[in-house]
Design a protein around this nucleic acid. Structure first.
Ligand code: DGT
Ligand code: MN
Ligand code: MN
Length: 557
DNA sequence: GCGCCTCCTTAA
DNA sequence: TTAATTAAGGAGGCGC
Protein backbone atom coordinates (compact mmCIF):
# COMPACT_ATOMS: atom_id res chain seq x y z
CA UNK A 1 0.00 0.00 0.00
CA UNK A 2 1.72 3.16 -1.19
CA UNK A 3 0.01 5.21 1.48
CA UNK A 4 1.82 3.35 4.28
CA UNK A 5 4.12 5.53 6.31
CA UNK A 6 7.02 3.30 5.40
CA UNK A 7 6.49 3.78 1.65
CA UNK A 8 9.82 4.89 0.24
CA UNK A 9 10.19 7.90 -2.00
CA UNK A 10 10.14 6.83 -5.63
CA UNK A 11 12.56 7.88 -8.33
CA UNK A 12 10.73 9.79 -11.07
CA UNK A 13 11.36 8.25 -14.50
CA UNK A 14 11.24 10.41 -17.61
CA UNK A 15 9.41 8.51 -20.33
CA UNK A 16 8.01 9.08 -23.83
CA UNK A 17 4.29 9.93 -24.08
CA UNK A 18 3.29 6.41 -25.08
CA UNK A 19 4.47 5.10 -21.71
CA UNK A 20 2.14 7.25 -19.58
CA UNK A 21 -0.95 5.12 -19.91
CA UNK A 22 0.95 1.94 -19.13
CA UNK A 23 1.63 3.39 -15.68
CA UNK A 24 -1.60 5.29 -14.86
CA UNK A 25 -3.13 4.81 -12.33
CA UNK A 26 -3.11 8.38 -11.41
CA UNK A 27 -2.65 10.86 -14.21
CA UNK A 28 -1.83 14.54 -13.93
CA UNK A 29 -1.60 16.99 -16.80
CA UNK A 30 -0.34 20.53 -17.18
CA UNK A 31 0.89 22.55 -20.17
CA UNK A 32 3.70 20.64 -21.85
CA UNK A 33 4.00 18.15 -19.04
CA UNK A 34 2.23 14.99 -17.93
CA UNK A 35 2.84 12.57 -15.10
CA UNK A 36 1.49 9.13 -14.28
CA UNK A 37 1.67 7.05 -11.12
CA UNK A 38 0.98 3.43 -10.35
CA UNK A 39 1.51 1.50 -7.13
CA UNK A 40 5.29 1.42 -7.28
CA UNK A 41 6.18 3.58 -10.22
CA UNK A 42 5.93 7.25 -11.11
CA UNK A 43 6.81 8.69 -14.51
CA UNK A 44 6.69 12.03 -16.25
CA UNK A 45 6.90 13.22 -19.79
CA UNK A 46 7.66 16.57 -21.37
CA UNK A 47 6.14 16.92 -24.82
CA UNK A 48 4.04 19.41 -26.73
CA UNK A 49 0.27 19.39 -26.34
CA UNK A 50 -0.49 17.71 -29.64
CA UNK A 51 1.78 14.79 -28.83
CA UNK A 52 0.45 14.36 -25.30
CA UNK A 53 -3.16 14.56 -26.47
CA UNK A 54 -2.60 11.94 -29.15
CA UNK A 55 -0.92 9.62 -26.67
CA UNK A 56 -3.63 9.97 -24.03
CA UNK A 57 -6.87 9.97 -26.02
CA UNK A 58 -6.84 6.28 -26.82
CA UNK A 59 -6.57 4.50 -23.50
CA UNK A 60 -7.81 6.44 -20.52
CA UNK A 61 -10.15 3.75 -19.22
CA UNK A 62 -7.68 2.48 -16.62
CA UNK A 63 -6.61 5.95 -15.54
CA UNK A 64 -7.79 8.30 -12.81
CA UNK A 65 -7.50 12.06 -13.09
CA UNK A 66 -8.52 14.73 -10.64
CA UNK A 67 -10.55 16.91 -13.04
CA UNK A 68 -11.63 15.11 -16.19
CA UNK A 69 -13.52 18.02 -17.77
CA UNK A 70 -10.24 19.92 -18.07
CA UNK A 71 -8.53 16.87 -19.57
CA UNK A 72 -11.35 16.50 -22.07
CA UNK A 73 -11.06 20.17 -23.03
CA UNK A 74 -7.39 19.62 -23.71
CA UNK A 75 -8.05 16.52 -25.83
CA UNK A 76 -10.81 18.20 -27.83
CA UNK A 77 -8.65 21.29 -28.36
CA UNK A 78 -6.25 18.97 -30.14
CA UNK A 79 -8.96 17.32 -32.20
CA UNK A 80 -9.34 14.16 -30.15
CA UNK A 81 -12.10 12.56 -28.14
CA UNK A 82 -11.68 10.00 -25.43
CA UNK A 83 -12.56 6.44 -26.36
CA UNK A 84 -13.51 5.80 -22.76
CA UNK A 85 -13.52 8.32 -19.89
CA UNK A 86 -10.96 8.17 -17.09
CA UNK A 87 -12.17 7.92 -13.52
CA UNK A 88 -12.57 11.40 -11.99
CA UNK A 89 -11.32 11.74 -8.41
CA UNK A 90 -12.92 15.15 -7.87
CA UNK A 91 -16.37 13.74 -8.65
CA UNK A 92 -15.97 10.79 -6.29
CA UNK A 93 -14.73 13.06 -3.52
CA UNK A 94 -17.62 15.45 -4.14
CA UNK A 95 -20.21 12.71 -3.80
CA UNK A 96 -18.71 11.74 -0.44
CA UNK A 97 -18.44 15.30 0.91
CA UNK A 98 -20.54 17.76 -1.08
CA UNK A 99 -19.99 21.30 0.08
CA UNK A 100 -16.46 20.61 1.33
CA UNK A 101 -13.40 21.94 -0.45
CA UNK A 102 -12.61 19.76 -3.47
CA UNK A 103 -8.98 20.33 -4.47
CA UNK A 104 -6.37 17.59 -4.91
CA UNK A 105 -4.64 18.83 -1.78
CA UNK A 106 -7.79 18.96 0.38
CA UNK A 107 -9.12 15.62 -0.88
CA UNK A 108 -5.78 13.88 -0.34
CA UNK A 109 -5.45 15.19 3.18
CA UNK A 110 -9.04 14.20 3.96
CA UNK A 111 -8.74 10.63 2.70
CA UNK A 112 -5.13 9.64 3.34
CA UNK A 113 -3.57 9.26 6.78
CA UNK A 114 -0.13 9.44 5.23
CA UNK A 115 0.61 11.28 2.02
CA UNK A 116 2.87 9.58 -0.52
CA UNK A 117 6.40 10.96 -0.25
CA UNK A 118 7.48 13.30 -3.04
CA UNK A 119 9.28 11.56 -5.91
CA UNK A 120 12.92 12.36 -6.54
CA UNK A 121 13.92 14.17 -9.72
CA UNK A 122 16.22 16.95 -10.84
CA UNK A 123 13.39 18.43 -12.90
CA UNK A 124 11.42 20.02 -10.05
CA UNK A 125 8.38 20.78 -12.15
CA UNK A 126 8.21 17.18 -13.29
CA UNK A 127 8.61 16.07 -9.68
CA UNK A 128 5.65 18.24 -8.66
CA UNK A 129 3.56 16.77 -11.47
CA UNK A 130 4.64 13.30 -10.36
CA UNK A 131 3.56 14.07 -6.82
CA UNK A 132 0.11 15.12 -8.04
CA UNK A 133 -0.19 11.86 -10.00
CA UNK A 134 0.83 9.89 -6.88
CA UNK A 135 -1.68 11.69 -4.69
CA UNK A 136 -4.38 11.17 -7.30
CA UNK A 137 -3.73 7.44 -7.44
CA UNK A 138 -3.53 7.03 -3.67
CA UNK A 139 -6.58 9.15 -2.82
CA UNK A 140 -8.64 7.52 -5.58
CA UNK A 141 -8.21 4.05 -4.06
CA UNK A 142 -9.78 5.23 -0.82
CA UNK A 143 -12.38 7.51 -2.34
CA UNK A 144 -13.86 5.04 -4.80
CA UNK A 145 -13.92 2.25 -2.26
CA UNK A 146 -16.07 4.53 -0.12
CA UNK A 147 -18.17 5.68 -3.08
CA UNK A 148 -19.19 2.05 -3.58
CA UNK A 149 -19.60 1.35 0.13
CA UNK A 150 -21.92 4.33 0.56
CA UNK A 151 -24.12 3.44 -2.37
CA UNK A 152 -22.96 6.36 -4.49
CA UNK A 153 -21.69 4.29 -7.41
CA UNK A 154 -24.93 4.70 -9.28
CA UNK A 155 -24.97 8.50 -9.02
CA UNK A 156 -21.36 8.53 -10.17
CA UNK A 157 -21.89 6.22 -13.14
CA UNK A 158 -25.32 7.38 -14.28
CA UNK A 159 -25.22 11.10 -13.50
CA UNK A 160 -21.92 12.79 -12.69
CA UNK A 161 -19.55 10.95 -15.02
CA UNK A 162 -21.74 11.16 -18.14
CA UNK A 163 -22.35 14.85 -17.42
CA UNK A 164 -18.68 15.75 -17.89
CA UNK A 165 -18.65 15.78 -21.72
CA UNK A 166 -21.95 17.67 -21.69
CA UNK A 167 -20.54 20.46 -19.56
CA UNK A 168 -17.36 20.61 -21.59
CA UNK A 169 -19.43 21.12 -24.75
CA UNK A 170 -21.51 23.84 -23.13
CA UNK A 171 -18.40 25.71 -22.00
CA UNK A 172 -16.89 25.28 -25.43
CA UNK A 173 -19.90 26.65 -27.31
CA UNK A 174 -20.50 29.61 -25.01
CA UNK A 175 -23.27 32.08 -25.81
CA UNK A 176 -23.13 35.01 -28.19
CA UNK A 177 -23.31 38.51 -26.72
CA UNK A 178 -24.57 41.63 -28.48
CA UNK A 179 -22.24 44.33 -27.18
CA UNK A 180 -24.34 47.13 -28.70
CA UNK A 181 -27.19 46.24 -26.33
CA UNK A 182 -24.90 46.49 -23.31
CA UNK A 183 -23.28 49.70 -24.59
CA UNK A 184 -26.63 51.39 -24.91
CA UNK A 185 -27.77 50.18 -21.48
CA UNK A 186 -24.52 51.39 -19.96
CA UNK A 187 -25.02 54.89 -21.35
CA UNK A 188 -28.60 55.03 -20.09
CA UNK A 189 -27.65 53.80 -16.64
CA UNK A 190 -24.64 56.12 -16.45
CA UNK A 191 -26.75 59.19 -17.13
CA UNK A 192 -29.45 58.10 -14.73
CA UNK A 193 -26.95 57.32 -11.96
CA UNK A 194 -25.27 60.70 -12.34
CA UNK A 195 -28.62 62.39 -11.78
CA UNK A 196 -29.45 60.21 -8.79
CA UNK A 197 -26.05 60.89 -7.30
CA UNK A 198 -26.63 64.64 -7.46
CA UNK A 199 -30.04 64.31 -5.85
CA UNK A 200 -28.73 62.04 -3.11
CA UNK A 201 -25.82 64.31 -2.21
CA UNK A 202 -28.14 67.33 -2.17
CA UNK A 203 -30.64 65.54 0.04
CA UNK A 204 -27.85 64.38 2.36
CA UNK A 205 -26.35 67.83 2.58
CA UNK A 206 -22.83 66.65 1.65
CA UNK A 207 -21.08 64.46 -0.88
CA UNK A 208 -20.16 60.92 0.15
CA UNK A 209 -19.58 57.50 -1.43
CA UNK A 210 -23.06 56.05 -1.88
CA UNK A 211 -21.58 52.63 -2.60
CA UNK A 212 -20.04 52.45 0.85
CA UNK A 213 -22.46 50.99 3.40
CA UNK A 214 -20.23 52.41 6.11
CA UNK A 215 -20.39 55.98 4.83
CA UNK A 216 -24.06 55.65 4.00
CA UNK A 217 -24.79 54.51 7.56
CA UNK A 218 -23.08 57.61 8.94
CA UNK A 219 -25.28 59.83 6.75
CA UNK A 220 -28.54 58.02 7.47
CA UNK A 221 -28.21 57.21 11.15
CA UNK A 222 -25.86 59.93 12.47
CA UNK A 223 -26.21 63.04 10.30
CA UNK A 224 -29.91 62.58 9.55
CA UNK A 225 -30.75 60.69 12.73
CA UNK A 226 -32.98 58.05 11.12
CA UNK A 227 -33.91 55.12 13.40
CA UNK A 228 -31.70 52.03 13.22
CA UNK A 229 -33.99 49.23 12.01
CA UNK A 230 -31.56 46.32 11.95
CA UNK A 231 -27.88 45.58 12.46
CA UNK A 232 -25.47 43.56 10.32
CA UNK A 233 -24.72 39.99 11.36
CA UNK A 234 -20.94 40.09 11.72
CA UNK A 235 -20.03 43.55 12.92
CA UNK A 236 -23.35 44.70 14.41
CA UNK A 237 -23.16 47.91 12.40
CA UNK A 238 -26.45 49.59 11.44
CA UNK A 239 -27.68 47.85 8.30
CA UNK A 240 -28.36 49.81 5.13
CA UNK A 241 -29.83 46.81 3.26
CA UNK A 242 -32.85 46.89 1.01
CA UNK A 243 -35.23 45.81 3.81
CA UNK A 244 -34.13 48.73 5.97
CA UNK A 245 -34.28 51.27 3.14
CA UNK A 246 -37.78 50.12 2.19
CA UNK A 247 -38.92 50.45 5.78
CA UNK A 248 -37.48 53.97 6.04
CA UNK A 249 -38.92 54.96 2.68
CA UNK A 250 -42.30 53.70 3.88
CA UNK A 251 -42.01 56.02 6.87
CA UNK A 252 -41.84 58.94 4.48
CA UNK A 253 -38.09 59.71 4.41
CA UNK A 254 -36.98 60.83 0.96
CA UNK A 255 -33.33 59.78 0.85
CA UNK A 256 -33.86 56.01 1.29
CA UNK A 257 -36.14 55.86 -1.76
CA UNK A 258 -33.45 57.53 -3.86
CA UNK A 259 -30.78 55.18 -2.49
CA UNK A 260 -32.93 52.17 -3.45
CA UNK A 261 -33.20 53.41 -7.01
CA UNK A 262 -29.47 54.13 -7.10
CA UNK A 263 -28.66 50.68 -5.73
CA UNK A 264 -30.66 48.82 -8.36
CA UNK A 265 -29.08 50.72 -11.22
CA UNK A 266 -25.54 50.68 -9.81
CA UNK A 267 -25.73 46.93 -9.31
CA UNK A 268 -26.97 46.38 -12.86
CA UNK A 269 -24.25 48.54 -14.33
CA UNK A 270 -21.25 47.26 -12.39
CA UNK A 271 -22.12 43.57 -12.16
CA UNK A 272 -23.70 42.95 -15.55
CA UNK A 273 -23.77 45.75 -18.09
CA UNK A 274 -20.14 46.84 -17.66
CA UNK A 275 -18.69 43.51 -16.52
CA UNK A 276 -20.06 41.17 -19.18
CA UNK A 277 -18.28 42.84 -22.14
CA UNK A 278 -14.94 42.17 -20.44
CA UNK A 279 -15.78 38.45 -20.51
CA UNK A 280 -16.54 38.24 -24.21
CA UNK A 281 -13.97 36.09 -26.00
CA UNK A 282 -12.53 36.68 -29.47
CA UNK A 283 -15.34 34.61 -30.99
CA UNK A 284 -17.92 37.11 -29.70
CA UNK A 285 -19.21 34.66 -27.11
CA UNK A 286 -19.07 34.30 -23.34
CA UNK A 287 -17.75 30.93 -22.21
CA UNK A 288 -18.92 30.59 -18.62
CA UNK A 289 -17.49 27.81 -16.48
CA UNK A 290 -19.84 25.23 -14.98
CA UNK A 291 -18.68 23.73 -11.70
CA UNK A 292 -19.71 20.23 -10.76
CA UNK A 293 -18.16 19.95 -7.29
CA UNK A 294 -19.14 23.12 -5.49
CA UNK A 295 -22.65 23.03 -4.07
CA UNK A 296 -23.84 21.17 -1.00
CA UNK A 297 -26.95 19.81 -2.73
CA UNK A 298 -25.80 18.59 -6.15
CA UNK A 299 -26.65 21.70 -8.13
CA UNK A 300 -24.18 23.11 -10.62
CA UNK A 301 -22.67 26.53 -10.16
CA UNK A 302 -21.43 28.95 -12.81
CA UNK A 303 -18.61 31.48 -12.74
CA UNK A 304 -16.47 33.78 -14.88
CA UNK A 305 -19.07 35.10 -15.37
CA UNK A 306 -21.95 33.62 -13.41
CA UNK A 307 -24.71 33.19 -15.99
CA UNK A 308 -27.09 31.66 -13.45
CA UNK A 309 -28.02 34.98 -11.86
CA UNK A 310 -28.76 37.21 -14.83
CA UNK A 311 -31.55 39.62 -13.76
CA UNK A 312 -35.16 38.88 -14.65
CA UNK A 313 -37.37 40.23 -11.87
CA UNK A 314 -37.42 43.93 -12.72
CA UNK A 315 -38.09 45.24 -16.21
CA UNK A 316 -34.87 47.25 -16.25
CA UNK A 317 -32.79 44.27 -15.13
CA UNK A 318 -34.49 42.00 -17.59
CA UNK A 319 -33.21 44.21 -20.41
CA UNK A 320 -29.78 42.65 -19.84
CA UNK A 321 -31.16 39.45 -21.32
CA UNK A 322 -31.51 41.15 -24.70
CA UNK A 323 -27.72 41.02 -24.92
CA UNK A 324 -27.65 37.21 -24.89
CA UNK A 325 -28.43 36.29 -28.47
CA UNK A 326 -28.36 33.39 -30.89
CA UNK A 327 -25.89 32.88 -33.71
CA UNK A 328 -26.77 34.47 -37.08
CA UNK A 329 -29.79 32.72 -38.54
CA UNK A 330 -30.37 30.84 -35.30
CA UNK A 331 -32.72 31.32 -32.34
CA UNK A 332 -32.40 30.66 -28.64
CA UNK A 333 -34.69 27.95 -27.31
CA UNK A 334 -35.27 27.68 -23.57
CA UNK A 335 -37.23 25.29 -21.42
CA UNK A 336 -37.90 25.64 -17.68
CA UNK A 337 -39.43 22.98 -15.44
CA UNK A 338 -42.75 24.06 -13.99
CA UNK A 339 -42.85 24.31 -10.17
CA UNK A 340 -40.03 21.80 -10.07
CA UNK A 341 -39.35 21.50 -6.37
CA UNK A 342 -43.03 21.40 -5.48
CA UNK A 343 -43.50 18.50 -7.88
CA UNK A 344 -40.49 16.74 -6.39
CA UNK A 345 -41.94 17.34 -2.95
CA UNK A 346 -45.29 15.90 -4.05
CA UNK A 347 -43.58 12.77 -5.30
CA UNK A 348 -41.28 12.28 -2.35
CA UNK A 349 -43.85 13.02 0.32
CA UNK A 350 -46.72 11.28 -1.41
CA UNK A 351 -49.03 13.96 -0.01
CA UNK A 352 -52.42 13.14 -1.51
CA UNK A 353 -53.66 16.70 -1.88
CA UNK A 354 -50.47 17.91 -3.54
CA UNK A 355 -50.28 14.88 -5.83
CA UNK A 356 -53.92 15.32 -6.82
CA UNK A 357 -53.37 19.02 -7.48
CA UNK A 358 -50.55 18.35 -9.92
CA UNK A 359 -52.43 15.52 -11.60
CA UNK A 360 -55.28 17.98 -12.10
CA UNK A 361 -52.90 20.43 -13.77
CA UNK A 362 -53.05 23.02 -11.01
CA UNK A 363 -50.49 25.77 -10.54
CA UNK A 364 -49.65 25.93 -6.83
CA UNK A 365 -47.70 29.20 -7.09
CA UNK A 366 -50.75 30.79 -8.67
CA UNK A 367 -53.09 29.24 -6.12
CA UNK A 368 -50.97 30.53 -3.24
CA UNK A 369 -50.94 34.00 -4.77
CA UNK A 370 -54.72 33.86 -5.10
CA UNK A 371 -55.14 32.69 -1.50
CA UNK A 372 -52.86 35.40 -0.12
CA UNK A 373 -54.40 38.21 -2.17
CA UNK A 374 -58.01 37.04 -2.15
CA UNK A 375 -58.13 37.11 -5.95
CA UNK A 376 -59.15 34.53 -8.51
CA UNK A 377 -56.19 32.48 -9.83
CA UNK A 378 -56.88 33.73 -13.34
CA UNK A 379 -56.34 37.33 -12.23
CA UNK A 380 -52.85 36.79 -10.81
CA UNK A 381 -50.11 38.84 -12.51
CA UNK A 382 -46.63 37.42 -13.23
CA UNK A 383 -45.14 39.57 -10.45
CA UNK A 384 -47.71 38.26 -7.98
CA UNK A 385 -46.97 34.69 -8.99
CA UNK A 386 -43.25 35.37 -8.52
CA UNK A 387 -43.92 36.66 -5.01
CA UNK A 388 -45.99 33.56 -4.23
CA UNK A 389 -43.05 31.39 -5.32
CA UNK A 390 -41.01 32.90 -2.53
CA UNK A 391 -43.85 32.22 -0.10
CA UNK A 392 -44.25 28.59 -1.18
CA UNK A 393 -40.56 27.80 -1.02
CA UNK A 394 -40.19 29.78 2.17
CA UNK A 395 -42.95 27.80 3.83
CA UNK A 396 -41.80 24.35 2.79
CA UNK A 397 -38.24 25.13 3.86
CA UNK A 398 -39.20 26.32 7.32
CA UNK A 399 -39.99 30.02 7.21
CA UNK A 400 -41.50 31.27 10.46
CA UNK A 401 -44.48 33.52 11.12
CA UNK A 402 -42.22 36.49 11.81
CA UNK A 403 -40.65 36.41 8.35
CA UNK A 404 -43.85 35.55 6.54
CA UNK A 405 -45.66 38.43 8.25
CA UNK A 406 -42.91 40.82 7.16
CA UNK A 407 -42.99 39.46 3.58
CA UNK A 408 -46.75 39.67 3.23
CA UNK A 409 -47.28 42.82 5.26
CA UNK A 410 -49.74 41.15 7.61
CA UNK A 411 -49.74 40.57 11.36
CA UNK A 412 -47.73 37.76 12.86
CA UNK A 413 -50.96 36.14 14.06
CA UNK A 414 -52.38 36.14 10.54
CA UNK A 415 -49.12 34.76 9.18
CA UNK A 416 -49.21 31.95 11.74
CA UNK A 417 -52.79 31.14 10.72
CA UNK A 418 -51.70 30.95 7.11
CA UNK A 419 -48.83 28.59 7.95
CA UNK A 420 -51.12 26.36 10.00
CA UNK A 421 -53.70 26.27 7.21
CA UNK A 422 -50.98 25.46 4.68
CA UNK A 423 -49.70 22.39 6.49
CA UNK A 424 -53.19 21.27 7.46
CA UNK A 425 -54.01 21.25 3.78
CA UNK A 426 -50.89 19.17 3.03
CA UNK A 427 -50.60 16.74 5.95
CA UNK A 428 -48.38 14.36 3.99
CA UNK A 429 -45.82 17.10 3.54
CA UNK A 430 -45.64 17.67 7.27
CA UNK A 431 -45.25 13.93 7.91
CA UNK A 432 -42.54 13.69 5.25
CA UNK A 433 -40.61 16.53 6.86
CA UNK A 434 -40.85 14.94 10.29
CA UNK A 435 -39.54 11.74 8.74
CA UNK A 436 -36.61 13.59 7.19
CA UNK A 437 -35.71 15.18 10.53
CA UNK A 438 -35.85 11.74 12.13
CA UNK A 439 -33.76 10.12 9.40
CA UNK A 440 -31.22 12.92 9.49
CA UNK A 441 -30.86 12.63 13.26
CA UNK A 442 -30.54 8.85 13.12
CA UNK A 443 -28.22 8.50 10.11
CA UNK A 444 -26.61 11.93 10.09
CA UNK A 445 -27.42 12.24 6.41
CA UNK A 446 -30.25 12.62 3.91
CA UNK A 447 -30.50 11.36 0.34
CA UNK A 448 -32.10 12.30 -2.96
CA UNK A 449 -34.36 10.08 -5.04
CA UNK A 450 -31.31 8.82 -6.89
CA UNK A 451 -29.13 8.24 -3.82
CA UNK A 452 -27.07 11.41 -3.68
CA UNK A 453 -26.12 12.06 -0.07
CA UNK A 454 -25.73 15.17 2.03
CA UNK A 455 -24.38 14.76 5.49
CA UNK A 456 -25.99 17.05 8.03
CA UNK A 457 -24.06 18.25 11.06
CA UNK A 458 -25.35 19.98 14.20
CA UNK A 459 -28.67 18.10 14.46
CA UNK A 460 -27.95 17.63 18.15
CA UNK A 461 -26.31 21.00 18.73
CA UNK A 462 -27.05 22.55 22.15
CA UNK A 463 -28.25 25.78 20.53
CA UNK A 464 -31.86 25.57 19.32
CA UNK A 465 -31.14 28.05 16.52
CA UNK A 466 -28.20 26.04 15.17
CA UNK A 467 -30.26 22.85 15.45
CA UNK A 468 -33.19 24.38 13.59
CA UNK A 469 -30.89 25.60 10.80
CA UNK A 470 -29.54 22.05 10.42
CA UNK A 471 -33.08 20.70 10.22
CA UNK A 472 -33.96 23.15 7.45
CA UNK A 473 -30.91 21.99 5.49
CA UNK A 474 -32.00 18.40 6.03
CA UNK A 475 -35.40 19.18 4.56
CA UNK A 476 -34.14 21.27 1.65
CA UNK A 477 -31.29 19.05 0.46
CA UNK A 478 -33.26 15.97 -0.71
CA UNK A 479 -35.69 18.15 -2.65
CA UNK A 480 -33.30 20.64 -4.19
CA UNK A 481 -30.89 17.74 -4.78
CA UNK A 482 -33.47 15.56 -6.50
CA UNK A 483 -34.38 18.46 -8.78
CA UNK A 484 -30.67 18.82 -9.55
CA UNK A 485 -30.40 15.10 -10.33
CA UNK A 486 -33.38 15.32 -12.67
CA UNK A 487 -32.08 18.18 -14.77
CA UNK A 488 -28.63 16.58 -14.94
CA UNK A 489 -30.25 13.43 -16.36
CA UNK A 490 -32.14 15.64 -18.80
CA UNK A 491 -28.92 17.32 -19.89
CA UNK A 492 -27.34 13.94 -20.59
CA UNK A 493 -30.39 12.89 -22.61
CA UNK A 494 -30.50 16.17 -24.52
CA UNK A 495 -26.79 15.91 -25.29
CA UNK A 496 -27.35 12.42 -26.67
CA UNK A 497 -30.25 13.68 -28.81
CA UNK A 498 -28.01 16.48 -30.11
CA UNK A 499 -25.50 13.96 -31.48
CA UNK A 500 -27.67 13.73 -34.54
CA UNK A 501 -29.58 17.00 -34.49
CA UNK A 502 -28.38 20.44 -35.50
CA UNK A 503 -28.65 22.45 -32.27
CA UNK A 504 -26.47 23.25 -29.27
CA UNK A 505 -26.96 23.08 -25.52
CA UNK A 506 -25.52 26.32 -24.11
CA UNK A 507 -26.66 27.03 -20.56
CA UNK A 508 -28.21 25.44 -17.49
CA UNK A 509 -29.90 27.59 -14.86
CA UNK A 510 -30.81 25.03 -12.21
CA UNK A 511 -34.16 23.97 -13.72
CA UNK A 512 -33.82 25.61 -17.13
CA UNK A 513 -31.90 24.67 -20.26
CA UNK A 514 -30.99 27.15 -22.98
CA UNK A 515 -30.18 25.89 -26.48
CA UNK A 516 -29.66 27.51 -29.83
CA UNK A 517 -31.04 26.08 -33.05
CA UNK A 518 -31.37 27.11 -36.69
CA UNK A 519 -34.35 29.48 -36.85
CA UNK A 520 -36.44 27.15 -38.97
CA UNK A 521 -35.89 24.28 -36.54
CA UNK A 522 -36.55 26.22 -33.35
CA UNK A 523 -40.18 25.13 -32.91
CA UNK A 524 -39.24 21.49 -33.42
CA UNK A 525 -36.25 21.72 -31.10
CA UNK A 526 -38.49 23.32 -28.47
CA UNK A 527 -40.98 20.46 -28.73
CA UNK A 528 -38.28 17.79 -28.57
CA UNK A 529 -36.53 19.52 -25.68
CA UNK A 530 -39.81 19.60 -23.77
CA UNK A 531 -40.44 15.94 -24.53
CA UNK A 532 -37.00 14.89 -23.33
CA UNK A 533 -37.08 16.99 -20.16
CA UNK A 534 -40.56 15.83 -19.20
CA UNK A 535 -39.82 12.18 -19.83
CA UNK A 536 -36.41 11.81 -18.29
CA UNK A 537 -37.89 10.35 -15.12
CA UNK A 538 -41.37 9.16 -14.23
CA UNK A 539 -42.70 10.47 -10.94
CA UNK A 540 -46.09 10.08 -9.27
CA UNK A 541 -46.93 13.53 -10.65
CA UNK A 542 -46.40 14.79 -14.17
CA UNK A 543 -43.21 16.73 -14.88
CA UNK A 544 -43.85 19.60 -17.23
CA UNK A 545 -41.54 22.11 -18.87
CA UNK A 546 -42.48 25.45 -20.42
CA UNK A 547 -40.64 26.40 -23.58
CA UNK A 548 -40.10 29.57 -25.54
CA UNK A 549 -37.84 30.70 -28.34
CA UNK A 550 -36.66 33.96 -29.82
CA UNK A 551 -33.68 36.00 -30.99
CA UNK A 552 -32.49 36.70 -27.43
CA UNK A 553 -32.81 35.28 -23.92
CA UNK A 554 -35.27 38.10 -23.22
CA UNK A 555 -37.82 36.59 -25.59
CA UNK A 556 -36.85 32.98 -24.97
CA UNK A 557 -38.19 32.99 -21.43
C1' DG B 1 -1.04 45.65 -6.10
C1' DC B 2 -2.89 41.42 -3.98
C1' DG B 3 -5.67 38.60 -0.89
C1' DC B 4 -9.25 38.46 2.22
C1' DC B 5 -13.41 39.83 4.65
C1' DT B 6 -17.87 42.29 4.97
C1' DC B 7 -21.89 44.03 3.07
C1' DC B 8 -25.02 44.07 -0.33
C1' DT B 9 -27.62 42.25 -4.49
C1' DT B 10 -28.49 39.13 -8.28
C1' DA B 11 -30.51 34.32 -9.55
C1' DA B 12 -32.70 29.41 -8.95
C1' DT C 1 -34.60 40.24 16.89
C1' DT C 2 -37.83 35.78 17.50
C1' DA C 3 -33.56 33.72 10.77
C1' DA C 4 -36.78 29.61 4.21
C1' DT C 5 -32.44 26.96 0.91
C1' DT C 6 -28.57 27.04 -2.68
C1' DA C 7 -25.10 29.84 -5.28
C1' DA C 8 -21.41 34.18 -7.42
C1' DG C 9 -19.73 38.92 -7.88
C1' DG C 10 -18.77 44.02 -7.09
C1' DA C 11 -17.31 47.78 -4.05
C1' DG C 12 -15.25 49.20 0.00
C1' DG C 13 -11.92 48.64 3.31
C1' DC C 14 -8.21 46.53 5.51
C1' DG C 15 -3.57 44.19 6.18
C1' DC C 16 0.52 43.16 3.95
N1 DGT D 1 -35.59 27.93 -1.32
C1 DGT D 1 -35.82 28.59 -2.45
N2 DGT D 1 -35.81 27.90 -3.58
C2 DGT D 1 -36.04 28.58 -4.69
C3 DGT D 1 -36.30 29.97 -4.73
N3 DGT D 1 -36.50 30.32 -6.01
C4 DGT D 1 -36.37 29.21 -6.71
N4 DGT D 1 -36.09 28.16 -5.94
C5 DGT D 1 -35.90 26.77 -6.34
C6 DGT D 1 -37.21 26.05 -6.24
C7 DGT D 1 -37.75 26.08 -7.63
O1 DGT D 1 -38.62 25.02 -7.87
C8 DGT D 1 -36.50 26.02 -8.47
C9 DGT D 1 -36.65 26.61 -9.83
O2 DGT D 1 -36.96 27.98 -9.76
P1 DGT D 1 -38.03 28.65 -10.74
O3 DGT D 1 -37.86 30.12 -10.62
O4 DGT D 1 -37.94 28.07 -12.09
O5 DGT D 1 -39.41 28.30 -10.05
P2 DGT D 1 -40.45 27.12 -10.28
O6 DGT D 1 -39.87 26.05 -11.13
O7 DGT D 1 -40.92 26.68 -8.93
O8 DGT D 1 -41.66 27.85 -10.96
P3 DGT D 1 -42.01 28.06 -12.51
O9 DGT D 1 -43.20 27.21 -12.75
O10 DGT D 1 -40.81 27.69 -13.31
O11 DGT D 1 -42.30 29.53 -12.62
O12 DGT D 1 -35.51 26.72 -7.71
C10 DGT D 1 -36.31 30.68 -3.51
O13 DGT D 1 -36.52 31.89 -3.45
N5 DGT D 1 -36.07 29.92 -2.40
MN1 MN E 1 -39.14 26.41 -13.01
MN1 MN F 1 -36.18 28.36 -13.47
Amino acid sequence: DITDGVAPALELELVPPGELLRVAGGLHLEPGLAAAAGRDRVVACRADGAELAAALAGGLDGATVFASKELLRFLRDHGHRWAAPPRDLSLGAYLLDPGEEISLEAVSRRHLEVLPPDPHATDLEAAAAGRDALWTAAAAERVFERVEAEGLGNVYEEIEAPLVPVLESMERWGIRVDLAVLDELSRRLGASLAGLEREIHAEAGEPFNINSPQQLAVILFERLGYPVIKRTAKTRRPSTGVEVLKELAGRGYRLPALILEYREQAKLKSTYVDALPRQVAADGRIHTRFHQTVTATGRLSSSDPNLQNIPIRTELGREVRRAFVADDGWLLVAADYSQIELRVLAHMSGDETLVAAFRAGEDIHRATAAAVLGKRPADITPAERRAAKTVNFGLIYGMGAFSLARDLGVSQAEAQQFIDAYFTRFPGVKAYMDGLREQARRAGKVTTLFGRVRRIANLDHPSAAVRAAAERMAINAPIQGTAADIIKLAMIAVHRWLENHDARLLLQVHDELVLEAPAADAPTVARELKRIMEGVVTLDVPLTADTAHGPSWYEAK
